[in-house]
Nucleic acid binder design. Sequence first.
RNA 1: GCCGACAUAGCUCAGUUGGCCAGAGCGGCUGUUUUGUAAACAGCGGGUCGUGGGUUCGAAUCCCUCUGUCGGCUCCA
Length: 614
Amino acid sequence: MTEQDNLRAMRHSLAHIMASAIQRLWPDVKLGVGPVVENGFYYDVDLGDGEQLSVDDFGRIETEMSKIIKANEPFERLEMPVAEAVEWAKKYNQPYKEELLNDLKRAGTTIAKDLDADELGLAAEGDSKVETVSFYRNGDFTDLCRGPHVESTGKVGAFKLMRVAGAYWRGKDTNPQMQRVYGVAFETPKELRQYLTMLEEAKKRDHRKLGQELDLFTFSELVGSGLPLFTPRGTVLRQELTNFAESLRIGSGFERVSIPHITKTELYKVSGHWDKFGDELFLVQSQETSDQFALKPMNCPHHNQIYASRPRSYRDLPIKYFETTTVYRDEKTGELGGLSRVRSISQDDSHAYCRPDQVEGVVAGLIDDVQTLYGTLGMSLRARLSFRDSDDKYLGEPELWEEAQATIRTLAEKSKLEYFEAEGEAAFYGPKIDFMATDAIGREHQVATVQLDFVQPERFGLEYTTEDGSPSRPVMVHCALLGSIERFLSVYIEHTAGRFPVWVAPEQIRLISVNQEAETLSFVDDVVRQAKELGLRVTADNNNESVGKKIRSAEIWKVPYTIVLGEKEIAGGELTPRIRSDLAVSSDAKSYAVNEFLKTVVNEAKSRVNKSSL
RNA sequence: GCCGACAUAGCUCAGUUGGCCAGAGCGGCUGUUUUGUAAACAGCGGGUCGUGGGUUCGAAUCCCUCUGUCGGCUCCA
C-alpha cells in the first residue's frame, strides 16, 4: 500500500468513525455517504425531525471519536447479498443507504454518471449488476462500504472537524438537503498543524480583508451584490495588470476592438447561448422600440460581427482581436463572494480567427504569453488539457476534435509546460487548455484559458475565401490571460498578501516629513513634484505626528519605499529609503541622490521585477 | 436558488434570563508638542443597533419580511 493509499484509508476510516460517533450521540441519524476529499473527509448526515448539527457539537463528536480511536476497534470487512443488504438498511431505518443499495442492485453502480462511485466510497464492481456488497464494521457500527480501511480505529492519524454545511443528497438540488460534516486529517499531528497554519495564513491574506484594509474595492448595498466598486488604489492595480496583459497582446499581433455592452437578444439566439444560459442574462428593455436587449454575458458574438462585417481572404488570416471589457452574468446570489465570483466580470478577452493550418502557431503564441505573464507575477503554472469524453453533448466534427486535441498535446509538450489531460472537461464547442497558477502559500487557482471553437464560426456563418476562391470556415481561438480580472485580483492579492511589487503598488513611495517647518515642507513638495514628473505614484505624509507613527502607518499600507525627510536630507540632498522588508535584498540602508533614487524606482517599475533594485 | 450562521460608529469589536442617556480601541477633527525609522499628550465629534413590520408597559436583545455578508451545496459560456 502506498503512502497515498494509506492516507486515503485513514481519512475514509475517520469518516466511519465520525459517523459512528454521531450515531452514538443521535441514534436516529440517517446516513448518506462519507468519502475522502482533498485534505480530509466528510460524511452527509440527516439527524431527522429537522434537528440540526452545529459547530458547537463538534467538541462532543470529537470526544466520542477519540473514545472509538482509543478503543482501537478492528475494521472488519463482511459481505452480504444485495437483497439482504436492502433488508438490513430497512431494518436500521437507513433510507439513503437503501436507495444506494437499490441502485447497486439495479444498475451495478451507485448512480448513473453524475457521481463517481469511487468518490462516494461505495462498492461498485463494474457495470454489471452487483450480487454482493461489502460492509465494514468497527465496534457496534456497520456501514455499507467498499473500503479500504486501516486495520483498526487506532490507526487514523491526526484529525480535526472543520465545518458543517448543507449539501443536497447525491448533489441534486431537487433532492432533500442533508448536513455535510467536514474534517481534515493527516498522518501526523505535525502535518495537521502545518495545514491549519496554512489556513490561518490564508485567512490573514483573505482578499476581502485586505481589500478593506488597503482600500482597494468596496461593495454597496444600493448598487447590489456581486458588483464591486474599485477605489483609486484598486483601480491602479487593475490598470497595471491589464496594461501588462494588453502589452503582451499587442506584442503578439492582436488588435484592439471595442464593442457596446448591450445587444439585441437575437445575437444569443444565433450563437446558441440563449438556450443554454438565457436565465443568467440581465435583460434590458428599450422604451422606444419593441426590441429586447441584454447585457452581454460574453464578447465572442460581438467580435464575430466585426469579423463578419467584410469579406475575408485567406491572406488576411489570422485576424486577431482583443479587448478588456466587462460582461454581466446574473449569477445566483448564493454563489457570489468577494471578488472571486461577481456579476460584473471584466475580461482580457481575445478572439483569433485562423485557417486550420494556423491554429498551432496562434495557440503556441498564446501559451507563450501566458507563461510570460505568470512568470513575471511569480506564480508557477500547470496546464489542464481539457478534452472531450464520449458524451454526445459536444458539437463539431469528431475528426476536427481529434486533430485539435492532438495539436494541443503537441504544443503542451513543446512549450515545456507541466500538464495533465482531463477528459470531459472540454467546452461543448471545443477543447481547451486551462491554466492553474500556484500561489505563494501553495494553493492552485484556475486562471488563464485558451479555447478552440468549431461551433461559433458555423453558427455565425463566418467565412474566408481560400486560394481557389471557395469559401471556408475559420477556426476561432478564445483566450483570456488574466481570465476574470476581478477573480484574478482576488488570487493576486492573496498571492502577494497585499505586498505588491513596485510596478503594481498603488502607492510606490511615501515621503514623511520630520516636522512642519516651511523648509521641510517645501523640500517634500519638491521631491513629490520630481517623482510625479517621472510618472511615479508618490504621496507625502506631512501630518503633525511622530516619525515613528508615520513609519508605522506606511508599513500598514504596505508601501514599497518610505523616506523620512528632515534637516539631514535637506542639507545633504540625499535620501535613505526604507525598503519594505519583502522587497529588500540586503538589510543595509543606503543613501541616494534624489534623482538617482527616483530613476532607479522608475526602472524597477518598468522592468516589473519582484525585488527592489536598490 | 437551497441549507445554516451572521449584520451594533469609517474600521475591529463589547453589550442576550427584554429595563437607567448604547460602549471601547483604532481612524477622523481641534489644540498642545516640532518630532529621525512600527503607536506623543489632551479634548471633541461620530451610531434612529442593516430595512420594514409585529409581540410587549418597555426591544440592539424575542418573532416575521426584505437587503446584504459568510460557510457549504448546485452552477460557471
